[in-house]
Design a protein around this nucleic acid. Structure first.
Lengths: 152, 152
DNA sequence: GGTGAAACGTGCCGCTG
DNA sequence: CAGCGGCACGTTTCACC
């Protein structure tokens, strides 16, 4: 789908606040409410907008810390890891990457015992290197998905 | 703020779809619409909900690839890097971490030339190690913020 | 829980390329 | 003539009491 200037403005505005009304959105962009409705629907149908999410403060749901864990393993274990990630609520994001590591995994950690458990679990089929997140100077909006909220 | 079971359900539901109506939300949770309205407002005021964002398909906005770049530098350059990140639209996320690296940075890349430019820029005050993202088996919802959408 | 106000979806018409 | 935006209407949803 081809995006024009107004589509980009709409995406910007919806990322800043996805719950604003179509009328407000229209006012900001310079379009009527029905026109906005139409454009947003098209962006959704074309898959440009994949959905809308709330940005939840992780500290408020008991996640005091995040860890970025690098995993090195052999090709034979790749699929096992993918399945493992899916069962772990602490795993916020897992990327398969090029380079000496196979996966880079971001985890939500409640406390040191939690971290230990996560590291031990992930070390099952490979070796792990753990970095703790001290601060996140840039964070262009990470939301964790509903079903995976770590249970407190 | 203390979250009860229903608050957690609300957070889940809003992360799955932030644009659903309060009435629909209430039906799902088992609360009246005014009660929902009140709860959501409190979650917002308490900072548990930090905002609402659209999840945008990065490919649709011209980002074909992501790279995770590790930066090693000396303490004197930390602040310079933070400022640098903020000026770079390609930087989606930057975390300061413990371990041998100082920063782990996730970048949105349009094409190889773009990657080269980003790497060169980031290598200004330290040394970088680049990993390309092949796939993201788990991605509990990353949205990039409006103002930083890479211009195509 | 109820009520006034605001938002949403739809159908129709006019403009423009 | 096709695509897109504006206007007006009925319906739903919201905020406040």
């Amino acid at each position: 789908m081809e995006l024009d200037k107004k589509d980009r403005l709409i995406l910007e505005a919806l990322q800043a606040d996805a719950r604003q009304s179509l009328a407000a959105l229209g006012k900001r962009i310079g379009l009527s409410q029905p026109a906005m409705s139409e454009r947003v629907r098209k962006l959704e149908d074309a898959g440009v907008i994949e959905g809308y999410g709330a940005r939840v403060n992780l500290r408020a749901v008991g996640v005091g810390l995040q860890a970025i864990i690098h995993i090195e393993t052999t090709h034979a274990h790749i699929q096992k890891y993918v399945k493992l990630f899916e069962t772990m609520p602490e795993v916020l994001m897992a990327d398969r990457v090029t380079g000496e590591h196979c996966f880079i995994v971001r985890c939500a950690i409640a406390d040191p015992a939690d971290l230990e458990r996560v590291v031990d679990t992930l070390a099952a089929h490979g070796s792990v290197t753990t970095s703790l997140v001290l601060s996140s100077p840039v964070r262009k909006t990470v939301t964790i998905q509903a079903a995976r909220l770590p249970v407190k």
